[in-house]
Write a protein that binds this DNA or RNA. Structure first.
Lengths: 218, 218
DNA sequence: CGACTTATTGAAAACTTTCAAGAGTCGTGG
DNA sequence: CCACGACTCTTGAAAGTTTTCAATAAGTCG
């Protein structure tokens, strides 16, 4: 397990630095984190619910979903993670997760050992604070998600999800327009919005040949 | 603003210590936090959405709800906080909250200045970690809440909320039975489950004189 | 008592799911 | 190159759930 060759983690550092000030040293400490690149197969959990995670999962490319489970066996998406995000940073303080992690499309993950993350956080209080803040930003997104899936009708849920993801992808874009790919099936969208895939399909008001997976907002 | 006379914060320390080891010194540092006791009027925001919070709100007695807002003006409960919890500990790293905080019943709040919390966290890394962990526990509850309001039918949502609160109150109880009071109106319950108050009423299968606010589970 | 909030009930309307079936897409192997 | 299987998307009709609207009872507090 060597240090990742290209600076995959630069996007993560940028994300942290955009809301916390980090010194050069602190940024280098994060960039120097060791990691192992793996491919995640779509629709197969690469982190299983209930098992301790010995590494955090940084999304290099693709799309990752966090799954919960309603009591009747249906799988529920509670969060999405796009490239540049760590899907389970909370495991640094909470090693046992009740949620599973799964790629929705072919995805590249950088596995970062917990031990390395803890070492960096302990050595650099500002980094620990940035991690904490990053986790809380994710938590605010969870709260927004509750409003979305619990208190809006079907069309608004879908529209809101698409717009939320637009905002999250925007940080990577230079121009005013946001063009992004959301490689989810309608069934995935249903699991993320608390609807059936049939109803998602109807709400999308689909005409033949309409595609879900590329969106452009101005 | 003197140090709170009785050890109101003992319950919070116990909560933190139950999942993180904290030394005597660290526990004393938390117990020694300054604070001001205030009464919160029910159904009036004591923390307003969008304003920076210069203090964290520790619930001494009563019940506090965190509110979001769906786009059509309906208020939505995204979290509940019972005595012994800090309702907005995340403001230590995220001073601007998009959520409002409101008491659902007559409630006593201990306002703890952010500056004091930051000082303690900076001086004691273990305390900072405990705070972080406590925040992430709340975030896991948010994820569970998504499953509940987004992916279950009405009866299950209500039942699940009542059971969840039972588990959270249980830590305060000595015996095997859990007896607790959940001082929410049916309209509050509706805002917490994503239903209408009319439907909550029907699901409770109410007969005359049935009371919502005291539950007993064995 | 009187004003206010909360709880209750019915009937119609709206929304969403379920079930079932058919069509389109994609990658694999014969 | 085409057939096949697996998965995704699409559509209709019936059934089920939840909301809306409206009105009445019950409870709380000054």
């Amino acid at each position: 397990m060597l240090q990742a060759e290209p600076a995959y983690l630069q996007a993560f550092v940028d994300r942290l630095a955009s809301c916390c000030s980090l010194t050069e040293t602190e940024q280098m400490a994060i960039l120097g984190l060791p990691g192992r690149l793996v491919h995640a197969t779509p629709n197969v959990d690469f982190i299983k619910a209930g098992e301790p995670a010995d590494h955090a999962c940084y999304v290099v490319d693709g799309l990752v979903a966090r799954f919960g489970d309603n009591s009747s066996g249906r799988r529920v998406i509670t969060a999405l993670h796009i490239p540049g995000e760590v899907a389970n940073l909370e495991t640094v303080v909470l090693p046992y997760t009740k949620a599973g992690l799964q790629a929705l499309a072919p995805t590249i993950i950088l596995q970062i050992p917990q031990s390395a993350l803890r070492t960096v956080a302990a050595a650099h209080p500002a980094v620990a604070k940035a991690f904490w803040k990053n986790c809380m930003t994710d938590a605010m997104i969870l709260a927004q998600w509750i409003v979305n899936v619990g208190h809006r009708d079907a069309k608004c849920r879908i529209a809101h999800l698409i717009c939320e993801m637009a905002l999250r992808y925007r940080r990577e874009q230079l121009s005013g327009k946001v063009i992004y790919s959301l490689p989810m099936s309608q069934a995935h969208l249903a699991a993320a919005t608390g609807l059936t895939s049939v109803h998602v399909n109807r709400c999308l008001g689909s005409k033949p040949n309409q595609r879900l997976d590329v969106w452009q907002l101005s």
